[in-house]
């Protein structure tokens, strides 16, 4: 039916098994490989696990980290919860916005970076903090962010 060459779906399904309990790891695997889960991915997964597409969609859209919209190669998530906010989150976001020329919620035109705000990352003692994909950075200052991002820009 669908001319789908989504090998990674078959791979993930083989790896985690054709059960509903594998749905989260499979969805997480898709995000890891291609930064977001497309509608086509969801239909494909539903078929493989013998679920309705609505069930897969329901799960995928519930979780903040299971992206269902195209995202950049590097997703930056700045913690906006209280102690990070108190310790200068705004200047961190400002620095990133200035450097990447995008606003919170946007992706750079070259699809390299997406900037998001997120809830507590668990680095309250070293705020402000952010994640770039899964890597945490804490104790941020505008200067530090500048250095970190410069590295990623050249990656």
């Amino acid at each position: 039916m669908a001319t789908n060459n989504n090998n990674y779906i078959t791979e993930l399904v083989d790896q985690y098994g054709r059960n509903r309990t594998s749905l989260m790891p499979i969805l997480q695997g898709v995000v890891e490989r291609k930064n977001f889960i497309s509608d086509q991915d969801m239909t494909e997964i539903a078929k493989e696990l013998d679920l309705s597409a609505a069930q897969v969609y329901g799960t995928a859209t519930f979780y903040a980290f299971l992206e269902t919209k195209p995202r950049g190669q590097f997703v930056i998530r700045v913690c906006k919860t209280i102690t990070c906010d108190m310790h200068g989150k705004r200047s961190i976001v400002q620095t990133i916005e200035d450097m990447l020329k995008i606003k919170v919620g946007e992706t750079t035109p070259n699809n390299k970076f997406t900037l998001l705000e997120t809830n507590c990352l668990g680095w309250c003692h070293e705020g402000p903090a952010m994640l770039i994909n899964e890597k945490p950075y804490s104790g941020l200052t505008p200067e530090k962010v500048h250095d970190i991002l410069s590295e990623y820009i050249h990656k």
Binding site: I82, N119, C120
Partner: peptide, 11 residues
């Protein structure tokens, strides 16, 4: 699933 704001002990 330590998510409570201000908690980071489990990590």
């Amino acid at each position: 699933d330590e998510g409570e704001p201000g908690t980071f002990k489990d990590r």
